[in-house]
Amino acid sequence: MAFHIDKLEKRWIYMVAGIVVMAWGIQIYYAAQGWHPPSNVEVIDSAQLHLASGVGGDEFSEQNIGIKRDENGMLVVTMVAARYGFYPQEITLPQGEPFKMRIASFDVLHGIYIPLTNLNLMLVPGYVSEVTTTVNTLGDYPMLCHDFCGMGHAYMFGNVKIVPADEYKL
């Protein structure tokens, strides 16, 4: 009934345990600094984004989408994703300044991703997706849908222009 384990195996297992603890440690370290994936668990009526009476209100109605500053001065981008586009279709943001993106799907599953950045969200109908991030490099980026949403999926993208902070006007 003896459980045979080689000395080499034991050493290896200690090393593996060390690797796992180190990986955990790195994760905890960054999580403690506020690097969380988007996880706001906030519901909304995707079929009634335009109505104030729907669950979640009319934050995503046509007159309310776009870029604003909230009471703390934080830039807030409010967007709608619908087959096959993002609305507003084009946004301009300042380089190096954090902004909060709040976005809801109007119909099916979508995603939004800005290549070469860490802005990456799943858009699930019935839920509001939110993330706060910063883009540090100037330029024009597509913001594209990265989850299959129908035959026009590949053509679902908008544009983001990142401009120097001192030239930025809201």
């Binding site: 969380h36 994936p37 988007p38 668990v41 799943m122 699930v124 509001v128 939110e130």
Partner: peptide, 14 residues
């Protein structure tokens, strides 16, 4: 697989 999803909270993902 749901890290980027809105319907689950950060603690559970962690």
């Amino acid at each position: 697989h749901l890290y980027m999803d809105p319907q689950q909270a950060a603690g559970w993902k962690l």
